[in-house]
């Protein structure tokens, strides 16, 4: 079944509608809804025999969990003793907003009495936080192991839902693409001289690497992953044509972006 972009926009609007809160909006940056995860999730759920309203509920609640986790990532690691009132307020609201979105996922699923999905999403949250702790106190001996942890963090939620609806045929492509997408984002930050907590965290725990060598490693991994994805998407089941098209479009976008960076020198 197709997941055209208009549907993704509609689903995104539904999630935005659920998390709408006047006071939070006034003092917090707008929560980012991860469109890559939304697209993959919609493809998986649309491929099930669930009723339309149930499909919508599954997608919205899973994305609420993702938004909740992402919002908590906005809380700074430490407090600055001379932080401005504005920063302090934004930090406090990020804590509460994340908890509020988590509460909403539970509420929406309890309304349709899907206790098993509540249970599964809760298990996913636990696993993600275990992996986040491993990443935070990273003792990985190689960058490859480090990125594997990132892959887990990026894909556990989607894979749990896929397993719940009994369709794991997208698992490999989903997890590889979500990692690749993350690496592309981090690479963009480095190229634009922006800070990357992903790279900072790696460098904090390793004495072997530098910023430049890490950027080179990221580029190499991205290239490898793109080649793997090119091959893997050919084997995707026919019902995932739209995902194939989506990946093609995103891969081409990345290639175009790189050509233009190379031309600009």
């Amino acid at each position: 079944m197709n997941t055209p972009s208009i549907e993704i926009r509609h689903l995104k609007a539904l999630v935005e509608d659920k998390i709408r809160h006047a006071y939070l909006e006034k003092y917090m940056q707008k929560p980012i809804i991860d469109e890559e995860k939304l697209t993959i999730l919609a493809a998986i759920i649309n491929n099930t025999a669930l009723a339309a309203n149930q499909k919508e509920r599954y997608i919205i609640t899973t994305m609420l969990v993702q938004v909740a986790l992402d919002t908590h990532e906005l809380v700074p690691k430490t407090n600055n003793s001379d932080e401005s009132e504005e920063l302090k307020l934004s930090k406090q609201l990020s804590v509460l907003a994340g908890d509020y979105y988590s509460g909403l996922y539970y509420l929406l699923l309890s309304e349709i009495e899907d206790f098993d999905l509540i249970h599964n999403l809760a298990s996913a949250i636990k696993e993600i936080n275990e992996s986040k702790m491993k990443l935070y106190y990273s003792k990985e001996s190689s960058f490859h192991e480090y990125t594997n942890l990132v892959k887990e963090i990026e894909s556990i939620l989607i894979l749990k839902v896929a397993k719940y609806v009994d369709d794991t045929s997208l698992d490999y492509v989903a997890s590889e693409w979500l990692l690749t997408n993350k690496l592309i984002q981090e690479k963009r930050k480095l190229v634009n001289n922006e800070s990357s907590s992903f790279v900072d965290n790696w460098l904090r725990n390793t004495s072997q690497d530098s910023y430049t060598s890490t950027l080179n490693t990221i580029e190499t991994i991205i290239e490898d992953k793109l080649q793997q994805l090119e091959r893997s998407k050919l084997n995707l089941p026919v019902q995932y044509t739209a995902i194939k098209a989506h990946l093609d479009s995103r891969l081409n976008e990345y290639i175009r972006e790189n050509i233009s960076i190379a031309e600009e020198g």
Binding site: H72, D116, H119, N129
Partner: peptide, 27 residues
């Protein structure tokens, strides 16, 4: 520890609570 560990711990504990309570299937 720091704020980050506190956030992860709180999220982990809340998820544990929901995992636990959903063993009872009562709307």
């Amino acid at each position: 520890y720091d704020n980050r560990v506190a956030m992860y711990t709180g999220d982990y504990i809340l998820a544990s609570a929901l995992e636990e309570i959903t063993t009872i299937k009562d709307a």
